[in-house]
Amino acid sequence: MGLSRVAVQKVGKRFGHQRALVGVDLELAAGEVCALLGPNGAGKSTLLGILSTLVRPTSGAVTYVDGDAARPADDRLRGEIGLLAHASLCYGELTAVENLVFFGGLYGVADPEARAHALLDQVGLDGKARARVASTYSRGMVQRLALARALIADPSLLLLDEPFTGLDRGGALALGQRLGQARADGVIVLVVTHDLEAIAEVTDHVVVLRRGQVAHAVRQRGFTYAELRDLYHRHAD
């Protein structure tokens, strides 16, 4: 069973004298797509880093709940988390399949090669591209590979930082559908994006961060682009 809820309680993060996050409260639930919005430097990527366990909060706590029980932040918890970051998190010297097989092995995926090909089919990296090393890929292809890597262990908490970057219209559409599927599968999805149009329809929960604080949060089953744009302008600008 995967994670059913993630609770962020009064989380703060400092980098030296710089305050990146200040007393952030946030609750993420299974089967919800949460859009984390905010201007550059609002602390969105830092919050993603904390949720992924790669960054330690200076204050506050994050609780990962499985059913009714809190999960300890141990090695196994990380197996439930899929992260798509600014960087590809993949090796340029390896092919797409080699990258996914390697990471699949570290995640304990039963048949990493079959899983790699299935995911590459899903993200739309064709057979020819799969045999090339990732350093020869275009930005969009790297993004597709990075998404496949994030999904390699079928995570129950999916953290996506600007997932639409570099994707063509078809790729963005497919990603939107993938997010809808993840929502239907009961995955907790947190998306940091400025592409409000692409995310609007599948979003259930909007959190606007400004200067490291939650400026606004609202839950609603699906938004329109105009609603998201309006929320952003009212609370982030």
Binding site: M1, G31, G186, R219
Partner: peptide, 21 residues
Amino acid sequence: AGLIEVAAPPVSCPPRAAGRT
């Protein structure tokens, strides 16, 4: 700031195990 406003009833959350494909 910092509070969560629930504008609509919370969305139904399918159990993860059932949805995992």
